[in-house]
Design a protein around this nucleic acid. Structure first.
Lengths: 148, 148
DNA sequence: ATATCAAGTGGGAAAAAGTGGGAAATCAAA
DNA sequence: TTTGATTTCCCACTTTTTCCCACTTGATAT
């Protein structure tokens, strides 16, 4: 399971090292895509298969209109990249994804169960401060949804 | 069952020893996460499995499509860490969790039935004073006799 | 009182992780 | 084909983490 928060450097060559604790689970190749909430998503190849299958499966009801779904899929598929993890655990972030979330020289790398997220470090802090305040309510809200 | 209150030191390397009475029950590895009040939760791996299962959305496997869920999962998974208990019973507290509740050089370690909580020692005292005052009323409400 | 043991604390040395940068290889344009 | 730029591969430095050992304290037993 991918968990935890790491702040790593992006060097002049657009390289960033994956936390060593993630490497085994991530494998040799990963899929990096634009994510939701101004971050990037990284999936293992296996996880990506599952995700892409669910997204393209016409029977799955994601409460989308078809046109919305097409748009969304363009977003997720069209800008996804397969990236190799090098011998010492670094990946190369494609420029178009880097620019998309305004990555500069520091990034927050977050394990979220079965995916990894990449955030602009400052955005991550801001976001967490907000969530921190809401955590109690969120917990209750999610707890309630379970029962209905 | 994990019970009792201990005040232990956090050294310059962010290490803190688990009370020896907790060690057997905690096992070799634990999960440490932000708690819901201003404390940290420590779960055994078994407990954590239960908790994380409850958080996962079994219906779609695409929990990242819901904003609330993304937020909460980032909070629970993104700021969790699997930590090993060393040969002499100490754990390492990740910086991002230490900072979150303003831990300095002393922490209160509290056994709460099936989890352990870590508090800033002063916060813990404050909290205790408040609870102390309410204890009588609470006991009546619950129809229970409680000893502190 | 003294010895003994367990629990908690502190710190040095080795190992691992993260970072930076040069050289070789690849590609593109002239 | 040559030149220049970009990418890939590899090595080396620095920092952090891990591992191990030893000291201190307080409780217990002789």
């Amino acid at each position: 399971m991918l968990i935890g928060e790491y702040i790593h450097t992006i060097d002049e060559k657009n390289r960033i090292s994956m936390p060593s604790k993630f490497r085994k689970e991530l494998g040799k190749k990963i899929i990096i895509t634009p994510g939701l909430d101004s971050c990037l998503f990284i999936f293992t190849l296996e996880e990506w298969k599952k995700v892409s299958k669910r997204l393209s499966d016409s029977e799955t009801d994601l409460s989308f209109l078809k046109a919305d779904k097409r748009s969304f899929n363009r977003y997720m598929f069209g800008r996804a990249a397969e990236v190799e993890i090098d011998r010492i655990g670094r990946i190369l972030i494609p420029d178009f994804l880097k620019d998309r979330i305004g990555l500069k020289d520091k990034a927050a790398i977050i394990g979220v169960e079965d995916r990894v997220e990449i955030w602009n470090d400052k955005e991550w802090l801001k976001n967490q401060e907000i969530v921190e305040k809401q955590a109690g309510e969120l917990a209750e809200k999610l707890g309630n949804e379970k029962t209905k």
